[in-house]
Design a protein around this nucleic acid. Structure first.
Length: 556
DNA sequence: AATCTCCACAACCGCCGTCGG
DNA sequence: GCCGACGGCGGTTGTGGAGAT
């Protein structure tokens, strides 16, 4: 299509274009033309011919000389871009082949948004082409509520990571997102996957069940690869749901009916809100404190992309997303700044999560690139949502607690403006609880609609976990509990405060949510020794930055 | 048939790293 | 070491076309 509209202009351009009124002010970055006004906009075939001729004679490079010597009133940058993307020989035109698509997906899982590097693996394709392809694909899949990465790619990336970081327990280099401070993330990831085993046939057996897995258990069936934030209404999503990966989507949709809803709700809304609720300050000295599956330099979620590979050890270098929100202040969980809660804003947030001030930006900003980070972010989101759903007792036992900031009310109000029949958290929680059910062994094939399941299920749960519509509506203002640790923190608090009965109820409730295989483990932890911050992978600094309400249980 | 919405693409913009003076 | 030019890269925007309403 590229040339159709351009060629249309040929009549008025060609040679005359250099003198044409279409020449615009054209400071093209650094490629100035010495006061000459450079043309912008679509290239014409005449310009192309000039450029091709010039490159044939002089070769590539020295692009600013093109303008000087060829009469092209284009800046060097523009010339280079035109040549690289459209004129250079051996360029492949047309749609990506299936093989190319697969390769792009795999490369993106490894590289993130390193389009140029990806292009190097795709002869004849340009970075711009790949970038455009990926971006449109992301949008499409986001709308469809589908995971960005097909399961095989997820597993491949995870296996690679697992083999290098989990098994060996050491960082292995630039492709290893599991940096020194990964805080049991491997467990988070893989246990999340494990939790999905009941749901998705392609999830392999994953060994090791650790404490960190508790967070993930029951959160599982939000597909580990999925983290997109659909921004359109369900009808449209349904319309646009056709599988990008034939066979895969079908499996997800048919076998995991809650998946789509979960993504819609958790990712759309809960994540948008919860995402701000992890401002755990990294240890300023060590830069190591990035709890709950957040990696230094991890590229999560900008553009819905993640990088499993970058940045490497120098990851402390911050790459801020282009869209940045002011981050919640350090230790400011209770008064997190609510982003514009409109879906678009949530989408924007997901794509460019708010950096925390200073170093924590990376730790809190899932940014573009990489599958593993996507998984981690999703795991984090899920754990947040889950904890959120279970936090009622926590909140009830701490009146006037940190959750009651006005910001939350704003969030709630804004959510209501969204016009969705369900409150954001209500639906999220509903899905979430359904996920818990599935993770506990319920057959998805027999799953009634999520709401039905949830309701029936929840009604059997202790009152603390029942999400009545009222509670669901309340949920957005309890975002403090979205912190993955809040649930247990409240648990600890209650232990320390002697709320034994509530404690027992809460423990049971959580245990129910966790599923059978984790129930005992959790109970042992909850009822036994107090769970230390180390169990959550928090270093002292991060721990110290937790609200006092969460630390009380650590007091003697 | 008109309008709207979304998609795909080209091109631009800004930032950053490199290099030479 | 500083500075400017240059090139590369990633993100974003603008626009025409196609399909849906």
């Amino acid at each position: 299509m590229s040339h159709t509209k351009h060629e249309r202009e040929d009549g008025m351009l060609s040679k005359d274009q250099t003198e044409s009124p279409y020449i615009e002010d054209g400071s093209c970055g650094g490629g100035g033309a010495g006061g000459v006004v450079l043309k912008k906009g679509p290239w014409t075939s005449a310009e192309d011919a000039i450029l091709i001729d010039y490159v044939k004679k002089h070769g590539e490079g020295n692009w600013n000389a093109v303008q000087k010597h060829s009469g092209l009133f284009r800046c060097g940058k523009s010339c280079r871009l035109r040549w690289a993307n459209h004129l250079r020989p051996n360029l492949k035109k047309g749609a990506f082949t299936q093989e190319e698509e697969q390769l792009i997906i795999e490369l993106h899982a490894k590289m993130g948004n390193k389009w140029a590097r990806m292009a190097a693996h795709l002869p004849g394709r340009t970075d711009n082409e790949i970038k455009n392809y990926w971006n449109t694909r992301i949008k499409r899949r986001q709308r469809a509520g589908l995971p960005l990465y097909p399961p095989e790619v997820c597993l491949q990336a995870l296996q690679e990571s697992h083999s290098t970081s989990v098994v060996n327990g050491l960082d292995k280099g630039p492709n290893d997102i599991l940096q020194n401070n990964s805080y049991e993330i491997p467990d988070v990831i893989f246990d999340s996957l494990k939790a999905n085993q009941n749901v998705l046939p392609y999830v392999p057996e994953l060994p090791v069940l650790s404490a960190s897995s508790m967070l993930m258990k029951g959160l599982g069936s939000s597909q580990y690869c999925g983290f997109m934030q659909p921004t359109i209404h369900r009808q449209k999503r349904l319309r646009e749901s056709p599988a990008f990966f034939p066979g895969y989507t079908g499996a997800v949709k048919n076998e995991c009916p809650l998946f789509m809803q979960f993504q819609d709700d958790i990712s759309d809304k809960a994540a948008g809100s919860f995402g701000l609720s992890f401002p755990i300050e990294p240890d300023p000295a060590t830069k190591n404190s990035q709890p709950f599956g957040v990696f230094p330099g991890s590229h999560a979620l900008s553009n819905g992309n993640f990088s499993a590979s970058e940045p490497p050890l120098e990851a402390v270098k911050l790459e801020l997303p282009s869209l940045q929100y002011p981050e919640t202040e350090l230790g400011n969980w209770g008064t997190l700044t609510c982003p514009p809660p409109l879906l678009e804003s949530v989408d924007a947030f997901i794509q460019s999560p708010p950096p925390t001030s200073g170093l924590e930006s990376d730790s809190l900003s899932p940014r573009n690139s990489g599958l593993l980070d996507a998984l981690l972010h999703e795991a984090k989101t899920l754990s947040s949502a889950k904890n959120h759903a279970s936090d009622k007792s926590s909140n009830s036992s701490t009146p006037g607690d940190i959750a009651e900031g006005s910001n939350f009310n704003i969030c709630e109000t804004e959510w209501e403006k969204c016009g969705e029949p369900l409150s954001p958290m209500g639906n999220s929680a509903t899905s979430l609880f359904s996920e818990c059910i599935s993770a506990s062994g319920s057959s998805l094939d027999e799953q009634p609609p999520a709401e039905t399941v949830t309701e029936s299920h929840l009604k059997s749960e202790p009152a603390d976990c029942v999400l009545t519509p009222e509670i669901q509506k309340e949920a957005p203002i309890r975002l403090d509990s979205s912190r993955p640790d809040t649930l247990l923190a409240s648990n600890w608090l209650e232990q320390g405060s002697g709320y034994d009965k509530d404690q027992a109820i809460l423990t049971d409730a959580i245990s129910s949510l966790l599923g059978d295989d984790l129930r005992n483990e959790y109970k042992n932890m909850a009822e036994g020794t107090s769970i230390s911050s180390q169990a959550w992978g928090l270093d002292s600094c991060a721990w110290n930055n937790m609200p006092a309400v969460c630390q009380m249980s650590e007091l003697p």
